[in-house]
Nucleic acid binder design. Structure first.
Lengths: 355, 355
DNA sequence: TTGAAAGCGCTAACAG
DNA sequence: CTGTTAGCGCTTTCAA
């Protein structure tokens, strides 16, 4: 397993290491015959220059660190793939770290990336989604960002100037709500999302605003935050269905909760979308595969990753970048939403099902 | 962005770099007072030793390279997560490369990993799943494996001694087939999988064998390989349903094709599993979420990744390892399979639906 | 067109 | 307990 070095090549070619280096990098003219000899040797030994040694001089590793919470959540691989596509151009490669939502692990990985001198960091999920993030966790990020270019994806840290790329969740939820309202729904609930996360409050803000704009009442007892899992969507739909008086449509914090909500609604004998319209957020691949297919707000995850990588590269190249690059989400209307039932219908429906 | 070095710390502490190095690594006793002084400085400057420089000496990077075809296929993130969990122990971190099934890109990444001197490589998908792999692609792998410990996951390269960790696909398919046969199915088809890939032929071998073992005929016109996508499952189920004489159950090459097959069967008015039993392979998360939930063979992807990482670590530590570590898959019986209809029933069914 | 030598940041003898 | 020094593999002046 002994690796061959530039010295081995130089010795065998009877030249100095400088000359070998020159043919390796094309950094200065080399006599054609000695070049040939050296290239032959490189080929013969399958010689690959040691990137560590190079980086020690150049101060560049060609590595981008990615910190994300959970690769088995299909949203993240899409973001990652987008970033990777964009990185092809600049020849960057990725050090990928899953934190499983553990802040201590985030810190650990941040340190590792600092030690490995990655060229830049893409940070998504975890602490940057908190409404109130511990001051020392914030401070730590600021310190690292001073040494390594960093961009936050779909998150923020208060009182901080870190560069961000984010989907406009407020606008996205407005899209979803306007769709529901245009379908004639006047009784709309909200399901899922942890209250201490910004994504939840952003979406709830839009939820309330759109209701007010349409002159509809905001029924606080139909707002049921919880978490982001399918289980949570099931549970909260369960709670909603227990109420005598219930909505004809729900807006969910993400696709997982929306799918959970659909399942539970169907189990209780409701027809989706006829008896209950449900809209999600994210547009994960699963949204297409569920029956009925989910109407949802597309984050364009791949585009998000791509843009983040583009911005990070500008940062690395010391170009000037906007503090916030905002991406407009799009509504994908599919099968889980339909016009609200006529009042008389829904009246009799409620009587039957709650009787 | 100027990074501080061990020299900066040493100078400010008025000691030599060796002393700083000692407190960094606890490699020799240091007077308590000078240690304190140095630690304070390290804290103050948020100093992190440069891993490049360290690796240059130690010949270890703490990085494992992972080459896989497509992270947006949910099977791979699970394998990766398993490997990552196992790697926690040894403090390894991952360089992740998506090849999108492009062999040239595989070569490129192999070279990058060689240059970066990763401690080991995990290779999954792509060329190692080919029944006939180009000799130079094989040769290239062998050359790299001579310099860097490498383990192949769920694949193989002919006439090669590379270390492998793999699910026993043959055994898994036997499990699935025995399940169908025990349910009384006598007319069974096979859908999906590219013929030039080993996974397809392994599964087909088991498919044929189990039929012969049970004294059932192998109907070649019900064997419909194609690719691994949901689209492919739809298409081939379509083809199957056009036949006058069709099976009561199908064994699919993977979960995606199985789900596609289910969708098409349902669209054609069949009841799954009553009119048609369908079994998949892999047990991706989606298998739980589809209605009816998919009966499938679980590869235990996470365990696969974990085991591969364990084996790779042994290889790195120059321990002796088995050439092939085989994992036994398990059958997960869910809702997409049911007893075969009684002959009379199925007879009348065929007449009705083909009339 | 080529070689000698300094140095990137760190560790590890080897002397004190 | 601590400092000096020689590399690790490579690039890059500076001379020749």
């Amino acid at each position: 397993m002994k690796q061959v070095t530039i010295y081995d090549i130089a010795k065998e070619a009877k030249v100095s290491v400088a000359t070998v280096s020159r043919v390796l990098n094309g950094t200065a003219p080399v006599k054609i015959s000695t070049r040939a000899k050296i290239e032959a040797l490189i080929q013969k030994h399958q010689f690959q220059p040691n990137a560590m040694a190079r980086s020690l001089l150049s101060k560049e590793t060609g590595i981008i660190g990615v910190i994300l919470p959970d690769l088995t959540n299909p949203f993240f691989p899409e973001v990652f793939a987008g970033a990777e596509k964009e990185a092809q151009e600049s020849g960057h490669t990725f050090l990928l770290c899953n934190t499983m939502g553990d802040y201590a692990k985030e810190s650990e990985y941040l340190n590792i990336m600092q030690e490995k001198r990655v060229d830049g960091i893409l940070f998504i999920g975890g602490r940057i989604n908190l409404k109130e993030c511990e001051p020392d966790l914030v401070q730590e990020m600021v310190e690292h960002a001073k040494k390594i270019p960093m961009v936050l994806i779909n998150g923020n840290l208060r009182d901080t100037e870190l560069t961000r790329v984010a989907t406009d969740e407020y606008a996205g939820t407005m899209l979803a709500m306007r769709h529901l309202i245009e379908l004639g729904h006047k009784r709309i609930g909200f399901i899922g999302g942890e209250s201490h996360m910004t994504t939840t409050s952003n979406k709830l803000r839009a939820f309330r605003k759109s209701l007010r704009d349409a002159g509809l009442p905001v029924r606080e007892d139909w707002i049921l935050p919880d978490s982001f899992s399918m289980e949570s969507g099931k549970q909260q739909m369960e709670n909603l269905l227990e109420k005598k008086d219930r909505p004809t449509a729900v807006c969910c914090v993400n696709d997982f909760t929306a799918i959970g909500a659909i399942k539970t609604a169907i189990e209780h004998g409701l027809k989706v979308p006829d008896d209950m319209s449900i809209v999600g957020f994210d547009d994960i691949p699963l949204a297409h595969h569920v029956i009925p297919e989910l109407t949802t707000v597309s984050q364009q995850a791949s585009e998000l990753g791509r843009t983040a990588m583009k911005v990070l590269r500008q940062l690395i190249n010391k170009g000037k970048v906007k503090k916030l690059t905002s991406l407009e989400p799009q509504l994908a209307v599919r099968q889980s939403t339909a016009p609200a039932m006529m009042p008389s219908y829904s009246e009799s429906f409620r009587e039957i099902s709650s009787g």
